[in-house]
Simulated assay, not measured.
Amino acid sequence: MPIENSAAPASHPSVKFGKVGVLLVNLGTPDGTDYTSMRRYLREFLMDRRVIELPRWKWYPVLFGIVLNTRPGKVGKAYDTIWNREKNESFLRTYTRNQSEFMAERLKDLPNVVVDWGMRYGTPSIASRIQALKDAGCDRIVLFPLYPQYAAATTATVNDKAFEKLLSMRWQPALRTVPDYHDDPAYIEALANSVQRHLATLDWEPQMLVASFHGIPLSYFEKGDPYYCQCQKTGRLLREKLGLSEDRFMVTFQSRFGPEEWLQPYTDKTVEKLGRDGAKRIAVINPGFVSDCLETLEEIAEQAAESFHHNGGENFAHIPCLNDSEDGIRVLEKVVRRELQGWV
């Protein structure tokens, strides 16, 4: 007998279905800047096997014996300098929520689409939001890791966590994972627009535009991760879009952690060298970050600026991420509409 003609048990709740979910997922954020919140966040992040690929017997003594006892206080102080006081949360959470709300507004012409957001580490979790979308009647979900360039430590671990949730579900939604968009013309145009708009507010012109991407260990690249190549292509396309010569633009990598060699050139060493070598005016953009966060607001806008000035530089500009700007949302919308094709 067809299911739709069968009488459900009296105690069985009504089942919603027929909608399509869009889940925007960013890296994550601590719930507060206090030691306990930071330790909880760092523990989840640094236990991810995609992030730290060392054998557990080698990594855990370092993680639990040193890192989780020393870094929460230090990182908490850094977060405190860039905390969104008005909402008592990190700007990454603020911007990701805004991106979700603006996306929902832009997709109002698709009444069956439900937009939500989550974090790989911290709250709201990927599992909780997939469940919420399923409960809202979404039997198909577009999972959108908010990383323009693919890396196993970012995009793949978001996908892993979503698949892990599906393992526990009796009625799984169909899942589409959004691929990287490192060379999408709309993304490159949005980056170029943001550079031009920001530089137009300055009364000086940078001698060098530095495109700083988050780094990964060199060994990850050597094992086949495409991240380095995609960052280089994003950089080249942005430089060409801006009409800059190769001697006025460079790609660098930031945020290295631990003793292992990471992708080079390193952003911090590059900024120091530019100052020592006589550059007086530079600007830095972070094309790999969809939203401003600790790595952009504190590591670049504060630390890198201070380092540049200390080494002889005079003018330093940090160009904000696309965040929840009109251009930024337009890029995300284009990607989402492309991935929804055939479902709506």
Rank of each mutant, 00 (worst) to 15 (best):
P9A: 15
S11Y: 14
S14W: 00
G18C: 11
G18Y: 03
L23K: 12
L24H: 05
M38W: 01
R39Q: 15
L46P: 00
E53C: 05
E53T: 13
P55S: 13
W59C: 13
V62N: 01
G65L: 11
T81D: 11
T81M: 09
L92A: 13
R93Q: 06
M103D: 02
L110W: 00
V113M: 07
D116N: 12
G122C: 11
Q131I: 02
L133F: 10
A136S: 14
C138G: 12
C138D: 07
V142T: 04
V142R: 04
A152D: 09
A153N: 01
T155Y: 13
A162L: 04
M169C: 10
R170H: 14
Q172S: 06
A174M: 08
Y181F: 15
E189G: 12
N193I: 09
R197K: 14
R197P: 00
P217Y: 09
L218T: 05
C229N: 11
K233G: 02
T234A: 08
F257W: 02
Q264N: 12
K273N: 13
G275L: 05
R281L: 02
F289W: 09
F289T: 07
I300G: 09
Q303M: 14
E306N: 12
F308I: 14
F316R: 03
G328D: 09
G328C: 02
L332P: 01
V336A: 02
R337F: 07
